[in-house]
């Protein structure tokens, strides 16, 4: 009994120790500190909970959804929310709740892939440009500028139009249009780090440019990139939905949220729920990512945190 009460306390002390005795304890301790800061931000925790629910929803979609997202029932079309169909049915009589639940998989796939590709391209280009300087910097940054010169969605549209509409191409297009801001950010960070004494010290040990870039500069750029990604997620979801809405992303009958809004727009005045339900879903998830990003900034990027 008493042991059970003491163990968590001593584990906390172990994690918060100022003098860790092993590499593992030091690393876990640093992570725990971050978690404590994050936990202090109520709104961020709220965002995290929503996202965990979203992930759980995506994983358990087949078991959670009351009906198949594809099965049509034209006699039940455009039914308002009721006990049988909690969120109503669409113009083909499909259960909107089931489609939303299955659609979370698509949303997560899009967001996850873009969030993986764009910052990595950006990080690589930005840090190389900032670190190398000179003509390398000029060339890479001018390319970045070209990408930045076009509105994101228009550029994505052009890509998808060229590659052919499909969910995979939509993701690719979004990723290719999303990286320039990350490159800018990474370059700016690199420029401030490049002349730091600890980089000079590593140079004096004979560390090569590759080691400096990967081992010393990347770890310091990554945190601000993660924050930026989390804050940009909402925009990515909206862009994906936009592509879906224009019919250039997920193809019917896939239950992509943006495509669902597009389907509902014909009936928006008389059967509001068809478009409103996926709209609310997009809104909630975007908000959750935004809140999460704010919390992550407190943890990872103390400079930018509120006072």
């Amino acid at each position: 009994m008493s042991i059970a009460e003491e163990t968590p306390q001593s584990r906390r002390d172990w994690l918060l120790s100022d003098a860790p005795t092993t590499r593992r304890q030091a690393r876990l301790g640093a992570m725990y500190q971050g978690w404590l800061t994050f936990r202090g931000n109520k709104l961020a925790m709220f965002g995290l909970v929503i996202l965990i629910l979203l992930i759980a929803m995506a994983i358990f979609a087949p078991w959670l959804s009351p009906q198949s997202p594809f099965s049509q029932n034209l006699t039940d079309r455009l039914q308002p929310p009721s006990a049988a169909h909690w969120l109503g049915t669409d113009h083909l009589g499909r259960d909107i709740l089931s489609r939303l639940i299955h659609g979370s998989r698509i949303t997560l796939f899009i967001v996850g892939t873009v969030a993986l590709i764009a910052p990595i391209i950006g990080l690589f280009i930005g840090t190389v440009a900032g670190f190398a300087g000179g003509w390398v910097d000029q060339v890479l940054m001018r390319i970045t500028d070209i990408f930045l010169a076009f509105p994101k969605l228009i550029l994505a549209l052009a890509f998808v139009a060229a590659l052919g509409p499909s969910i995979g191409n939509a993701v690719l297009a979004l990723a290719l249009t999303a990286w320039p801001p990350y490159a800018r950010l990474a370059r700016a960070e690199t420029l401030t780090i490049r002349n730091a004494d600890f980089i000079a010290a590593a140079r004096l040990q004979g560390a090569g440019p590759l080691r400096l870039l990967i081992g010393h500069i990347w770890p310091l750029c990554i945190s601000s990139l993660i924050v930026r990604v989390a804050l940009d997620m909402a925009g990515i979801i909206l862009s994906a939905a936009g592509l879906g809405f224009l019919g250039l992303g997920a193809q019917p009958p896939m239950p992509e949220w943006g495509a669902m809004i597009s389907d509902g727009r014909t009936y928006i005045l008389d059967f509001w729920w068809v478009a409103a339900m996926p709209g609310i879903a997009i809104f909630v998830v975007s908000l959750a990512f935004n809140l999460l990003g704010d919390g992550l900034r407190d943890v990872l990027d103390p400079k930018g945190a509120k006072e």
């Binding site: 590499r23 730091a196 600890f198 010290a201 590593a202 004096l204 010393h216 770890p219 310091l220």
Partner: peptide
Amino acid sequence: FHKTVQMVFQDPYASLHPRHS
């Protein structure tokens, strides 16, 4: 050269990588 010459910097807050133990 690196084996012969080393340097200690002025500001101990700037000369250690903040994320390296």
